[in-house]
Every structure is written in structure tokens, then in C-alpha cells.
Amino acid sequence: VKKMAKAIMADPNKADEVYKKWADKGYTLTQMSNFLKSKTAGKYDRVYNGYVIHLD
């Protein structure tokens, strides 16, 4: 998940494709939050927020 999150950060155009894969795998927002937690607070906030919007 972190590898794909980094791919989104490097190229935001990949976001919809990645979010669809995550949704197809049934990842919940709680799971995504836990996967994307980082020592650098807020590092993956943009990715998480994008997934929230995708699921909505």
C-alpha cells in the first residue's frame, strides 16, 4: 500500500487507478489509515483524503 501511495504522490494522475484497486480489494478507511501511518505526520494525508473522496 505504501508503495502505491508513494506512486500517487509522485504522479497524482495514477490516483484513480490505485484507489479503484484498493476499493476492489475491500480496503476500509481504517485499514488505509493504519497502513499509511508514518513517523512523518501528515505525509500521506493527501492520499488518504483522496481515497475518502473516491469511496464517497
Rank of each mutant, 00 (worst) to 15 (best):
H54A: 07
A5F: 04
K43F: 11
T40A: 09
A10E: 12
Q31G: 02
D16L: 13
Y51D: 00
V52S: 10
P12K: 07
V18N: 03
K37V: 08
W22I: 01
K39R: 11
E17P: 04
A10V: 10
D24E: 15
Y27R: 00
G26C: 08
D45K: 07
K39I: 08
K21A: 15
D16H: 14
L55E: 01
E17L: 09
A5V: 04
L29V: 11
I53C: 10
A7M: 15
A23H: 09
S33F: 14
T28P: 00
L36G: 03
M32Y: 00
V1F: 08
Y48W: 06
V18P: 00
T30H: 12
N34I: 14
A7T: 09
I53Y: 09
Y51H: 02
K20M: 09
L29I: 10
K25Q: 14
Y51N: 00
N49P: 02
K43I: 08
M4Q: 14
F35Q: 04
Y48T: 03
Y44A: 01
K39N: 12
S38K: 04
I8V: 12
V18D: 01
S38R: 04
R46I: 14
W22E: 00
K37I: 09
K25A: 15
I8K: 03
W22Y: 02
K21W: 11
L55K: 01
M32A: 01
N34H: 14
G50V: 07
K3G: 08
W22Q: 00
P12Q: 08
Y48D: 01
A5T: 03
Y48F: 13
M32W: 02
Y48K: 04
L36A: 00
K39E: 13
S33K: 15
K14L: 14
V47F: 04
V1H: 03
E17C: 12
K43L: 11
V1W: 04
K21E: 14
T28M: 01
V47T: 01
N13G: 13
K14V: 14
F35G: 02
S38Y: 08
G26V: 01
G42E: 06
A7F: 07
H54K: 02
M9Q: 06
V18M: 08
L29Q: 07
Y44H: 01
M9S: 03
T40G: 08
M4H: 06
I53R: 14
G50E: 06
M9G: 02
D11I: 05
K14R: 12
E17R: 08
L36V: 01
S38A: 06
Y27V: 04
N49Q: 15
K6N: 12
E17D: 10
V47Q: 02
T40Y: 11
D24N: 11
A5S: 03
K37M: 10
Y27E: 00
K25F: 13
A15W: 05
L36E: 01
N49A: 14
V1P: 06
D45G: 05
S38W: 06
K21R: 12
S33P: 02
K20T: 10
V47A: 05
A5H: 00
L55V: 04
I8S: 02
M9D: 02
A10W: 09
K25T: 11
H54E: 03
S33R: 15
D11G: 02
K37S: 12
N13R: 14
Y44G: 03
Y44M: 01
S38L: 06
Y44N: 00
V52K: 15
F35C: 08
V18I: 15
L55C: 07
G50W: 07
A15D: 03
T28G: 05
G42I: 04
K20H: 09
A7E: 13
N34D: 13
A41M: 11
D11C: 12
D56V: 14
Y51P: 03
K3S: 11
P12H: 07
D16K: 11
T28C: 05
K43A: 07
N13S: 15
K21N: 13
A7W: 10
D11Q: 07
D56G: 14
W22A: 01
M4S: 08
F35T: 02
V47S: 01
G26W: 03
V52W: 07
H54P: 02
T40D: 10
K21M: 15
A41S: 12
K2N: 03
K21F: 15
N49F: 14
Y51A: 01
A7Q: 12
Y27S: 01
R46W: 15
H54G: 02
A5N: 02
S38E: 05
A10Y: 09
N13K: 12
V18R: 01
L36P: 01
H54V: 05
G50F: 07
H54M: 07
V1N: 03
D11W: 07
Q31K: 05
L29P: 10
K2T: 06
T30A: 13
Q31A: 08
L55I: 08
W22R: 00
K25H: 11
Y19K: 00
Q31M: 14
Y48R: 00
K25V: 11
